[in-house]
């Protein structure tokens, strides 16, 4: 080729490499370094080796946060894999006016998480709308402390997160549904399958790649959850809904213990990495079948 130099491709890559380097790889590297120091925000740290990681093992609050994060993930992921699929199947029909419902279900996605969480935090107050409606319907007798009762706080956060995520994952599923050939459904009808049977023999197997994708994305998002919890409960009451990122935030920005926070961030990173590897493994095993 004419005038082609070895550095030409690198020139094209340069802008994004610089951005990635400054805002991603440098912080990542820095986190790694910080995690082995006792750095505070207001003073540099001394090298302490693996001391921060040892401290994590003994830190009951860390284990509490990790447990909450995992509970949150276990609560959110199955709901976000299944419910948006059902929703997508419902709005994928050719009924008149169905586009309206598609828009309605998608709208929470474009709303800001902070706004959504604020509105829900009002609705979930002891004297809020949710309690009012449930009492009216005589489902509950006494108002419940959705966000103030330690046994309910995490569940409430899970419900709000699922509600907010439905539309987003529904759209992913809708894209997948468009790719299922009609004649598979028709073949199943001719074979004598009713709507439910068709869902299980055509939709579910054909949507498996989308389901793995949604499972992975929602799991990664769940393990990293922050805004929802921060706005709704702040991690309370009594740390009953405090997740890992929230605890990292607390140590790093309130306790100013950057070294320790970095060490925990690193363990979170490993956790996320494990999730992605697991999902890749599942996908590959599927493909091999």
């Amino acid at each position: 080729m004419i005038g082609r130099r070895w550095y030409t491709p690198w020139l094209f890559l340069l802008p994004s490499l610089v951005l990635l380097g400054v805002f991603y790889w440098w912080p990542v590297l820095n986190t790694g370094i910080l995690s082995m120091t006792d750095a505070h925000t207001l003073r540099g740290g001394e090298f302490v080796g693996l001391e921060n990681f040892r401290r994590m093992v003994d830190d009951a609050f860390f284990w509490n946060a990790l447990e909450n994060s995992l509970l949150f993930t276990v609560g959110v992921v199955p709901a976000l894999v299944v419910l948006p699929l059902l929703l997508a199947v419902l709005v994928n029909t050719k009924l008149p006016g169905i586009a309206f419902f598609r828009t309605v279900f998608f709208s929470p996605v474009i709303a800001s998480m902070v706004v959504v969480a604020l509105i829900w935090s009002w609705m979930l107050r002891t004297d809020g709308l949710v309690n009012y409606v449930l009492q009216r319907l005589q489902i509950i007798n006494e108002p419940l402390g959705w966000l103030s009762d330690p046994s309910l706080a995490l569940i409430s956060v899970i419900v709000v997160t699922v509600w907010k995520g439905l539309g987003y994952y529904m759209v992913i599923y809708l894209a997948g549904l468009q790719n299922i050939p009609d004649d598979l459904y028709e073949a199943a009808s001719v074979d004598g399958a009713g709507p439910i049977r068709r869902f299980w023999t055509v939709t579910v197997p054909m949507m498996r790649p989308s389901m793995v994708l949604v499972g992975t994305l929602s799991a990664i998002n769940a393990i990293k959850v922050f805004t929802e919890v921060f706005v709704l409960t702040g991690g309370g009451p009594f740390r009953s809904s405090e997740t890992l990122v929230l605890y990292i935030y607390e140590r790093g920005f309130e306790g100013l213990e950057m070294g320790y926070a970095s060490a925990m961030s690193l363990s979170l990173f490993v956790l996320v990495l494990l999730f992605s590897l697991a999902s890749q493994w599942i996908t590959r095993r599927r493909a091999a079948l």
């Binding site: 004649d183 028709e186 073949a187 199943a188 001719v190 074979d191 004598g192 054909m206």
Partner: peptide, 28 residues
């Protein structure tokens, strides 16, 4: 279609991709 008891062969064949040949043939 179920009540009509007819069988159809599609241009695309429309085989169920996740089922074995045996299960495809035996599904109905």
């Amino acid at each position: 279609p179920k009540e009509r008891d007819i069988a159809m062969v599609f241009q695309s064949y429309a085989l169920y991709p996740h089922m074995s040949v045996r299960d495809n043939m035996g599904f109905a």
